[in-house]
Amino acid sequence: MEHHSVLRVVSKLLIPPIILYALYVQWHGDYGPGGGFQAGVLFAVAFILYALVFGIDSMMKVLPPRTAHIFAGAGVLIYAGTGIVTMLLGDAFLGYNALAHDPVHAQEWGILAVEFGVGVSVAAVMIALFVAFARHNPPLKDEDW
């Protein structure tokens, strides 16, 4: 898509706000609509847009598939690790009340940690899925369609 200069310029303008919005949705999910699932998908969409316009190879220089796979596992581990930490602090698995001096703050911390894990995992999984489909065998030739 080298010759589509409009697409290139517009996507260059769009990608930073998309990532910024994803971060807003991630950390502001307590107060408005949003949360880890939506933020993860939005974050992945920024990378997918970059791959669609500039080619998947240049996207993979930014984020190699292996890194995406590691992050997919790391997100799940952050989530489950929060549960382990609360167990070590003397509460039940994912019982956030032990995380801070008073329960309301502790719940806030717990929710933030868990949503962060969800966001990391979902973003990495979506990017990995897209790369797996886009980098599979060479696509069919036009006459095969």
């Binding site: 107060y31 408005g32 609509p33 309301v104 719940q107 806030e108 717990g110 929710i111 969800v118």
Partner: peptide, 19 residues
């Protein structure tokens, strides 16, 4: 009262139904 999070959906998602 218990979580102080205004978005009830997030509270249920991440806290009450964390499992």
């Amino acid at each position: 009262v218990e979580t102080g999070v205004p978005n009830v959906v997030t509270a249920i998602l991440a806290s009450y139904r964390g499992f």
